[in-house]
Amino acid sequence: MKKYHPIEAKGITTKFGRKFVHKDLNFHAEEGKITGIVGGSGSGKSVLMNTMLGLIEPQEGEVFFNGLNRKRFKKNDILDINNSIGVLFQGGALFSSLTILDNILVPLREYTNLNEQLLRGIAIMKIHMVGLSSEVLDLYPSELSGGMKKRAGLARALALDPKLLFLDEPTAGLDPIGANAFDELILRLKSSMDLTVIMVTHDLDSLLHTCDKVAVLINKQIAIIDSLHKVAKYDNPWVKEYFNGPRSRFN
């Protein structure tokens, strides 16, 4: 039996108006690995992520989950797939009218039949799992700092034990210590929950520290997906500047 990638995008073409964002783009993530997506601002990283999540419909091309075409899904399949995907949006995207605990209970309540006490127990465990204390349970998202919001967003993304986790700029806006702690957290959760992670990031430290594979988005296509050191040697002016510039760690 052929082994499928947890997620694969084939021949994606997206345009907004007349402007092409992606042109015949191919991407895949390997199971149990952290794949980073890098690219200049406006190169379409977030559009790619949204396409894979089904938030944007591409003009051409298909997205496969474990070898299954997203377009051919029936309604129930979509629900199953969505339950096996967790997403951490850039600002956390917590529901601002709910407390942190209720935020994490939203997916749990919706898709399980467990009793309330158990659900609360599981939600509180998830909150501890991402390194937040019990004090945040009854706080509202607006009362949390940026780093705590990201952690709470991660707890919500992990609520239903997804197999595939999307992270949009997880360390943006965090101080180096906080960013490092977040990287550690991702690595720990990845190894213990057997996650496949796709991470859009600009943070070179984070790439170096966490990613097994790096995909580079240039000229509307994924130019290369490989380990960081091979990508750093890839012959392209943008890649060279990106990895060998003054802020790089490879010198």
Binding site: M125, H128, M129, R188, S192
Partner: peptide, 9 residues
Amino acid sequence: LMELVIGST
């Protein structure tokens, strides 16, 4: 996984 969950509960 058990280690993680027990540590967080």
